[in-house]
Amino acid sequence: MIDRILDMFTTVSNESHGSVAVVFLIGIIFGVIIQYSRVDKFEKIAGFAMLRDTVVPKMLFLAIGLASIGLYFMVQAGYASYHPKPIILGGLIIGGAIFGISMAILGKCPGTGPVSIAEGRIDVLVGAIGGIFGGLVFTVYFDFFKKIMGESLGKTTLLTYFHGHETLTILIFGITLIVISIIIPLREEFDKADLNQLKD
C-alpha cells in the first residue's frame, strides 16, 4: 500500500498538470475557502435541501458566473483550455438523482466532506467509509455501470451552439449566473453548537 501511495506522488510529478507542491497548494486553498465560509457544515447543504439556507447556491452561482467569463478570456489568450465532460444521459440523470438524494441526507458533497472530517466530524468520516465502499463497488462492477451510463453524445458546450458569437454568449451566460447569485434571497441556518463558541 505504501508503494502505491508513493506512486500517487510520482504519477502527479511525471505529468504536466502542476507539480506536487502546486496541486497540494490548490488543495490547501480549496480547504481554506470551504472551511472559512463554513459551507462544509451539515446545516449548509442539508439546510439548502430544506430551503432554510442559501449560502451554498449563492456562492456556487457567483463562482461559476465569474469563472465562466474569466476562463473564456484565458482560453482565448492561450493560458487555459476547455475540458468538458461527455454527455452520458443515463449516467447524468440517474447518477445526478442518486447524488442529490445522498447529498441532502449526508449534508456534504465529495469536496466539502473531507474538509468537515478535518474539523472533527465523525459522522462524515463514517460517510467517507461508505464512500470508499461505493468507489469499490463502482470499480469492480464497472462493466455493469457502464451500461447504465449509456453512450456519450459528445462533449458539447453552449459556446458551440452560438458559433461566431462566443464572446457575447459567454458575457450573457456569466452575467446571468452572477445576477442569479445576487437575487437568490439570503437565508441562513446556524448551528447553535458553533454559535456558542463565538464570543463576538
Binding site: I98, K108, V124
Partner: peptide
C-alpha cells in the same frame, strides 16, 4: 448516503466540483 454519493458521482462522471463548478464554468451541456 456516503456510499450512494460516490456511486452517483461516478455514474455522472463528476460531482459538485467537477460538474457544477468546473463544468458549468466551461458551459458544458
Amino acid at each position: 448516503s456516503g456510499f450512494f454519493l460516490i456511486l452517483g458521482a461516478r455514474l455522472a462522471g463528476g460531482c459538485t466540483s467537477g460538474h457544477f463548478l468546473s463544468g458549468v464554468a466551461q458551459t458544458a451541456v
